[in-house]
Amino acid sequence: MTEIKGISQVNEVCEGLKKRIGCEFVALALQNEVGPDVRWHYASGNLNDKYKRITVRFGKGIAGKIISSGSPMMLIDFPNDIYGKVTDHPIMLAEKLVSCYAVPIFFNSSPKGVLLVGKREKYTFSEDDQEMVQDAALELEQILQNQILGLGGYV
């Protein structure tokens, strides 16, 4: 078992993405090996360590919706114009994010994780930004797949 934060390739992809997009926060949520829980295993640009204790709720908030639907999502001006309650978006509250774009990470064709980039200001992520996040998610899928097969999982 290995920690996601300790995988240098994951750090490189996430830090590279953060720089290219010019965002303040990047995080990676993944379903635990055992059970249905999805947790934030990696974050960069975080203000505190709340993300480590947050369990993403299936179908709730941006990450929960992505895991349940398998489609990307964007928030432009949190907490305005959101679907559901403000408290359904704990990562936005914990990190004081105002905008974010997040995409699913697939394992065996099922969404098992989320890659999220966020800013602490109102922002619309352009098509180029969205493409960069999608590419990074594909890279992460590959890295994590190899890690899981080679090292017997992650924590």
């Binding site: 505190n48 360590d49 993300y51 204790r53 947050i54 369990t55 408290t87 704990p90 509250l93 914990a94």
Partner: peptide, 8 residues
């Protein structure tokens, strides 16, 4: 609450 918001 803690597992939702990360607040101890």
């Amino acid at each position: 609450y803690t597992s939702t918001f990360g607040i101890v």
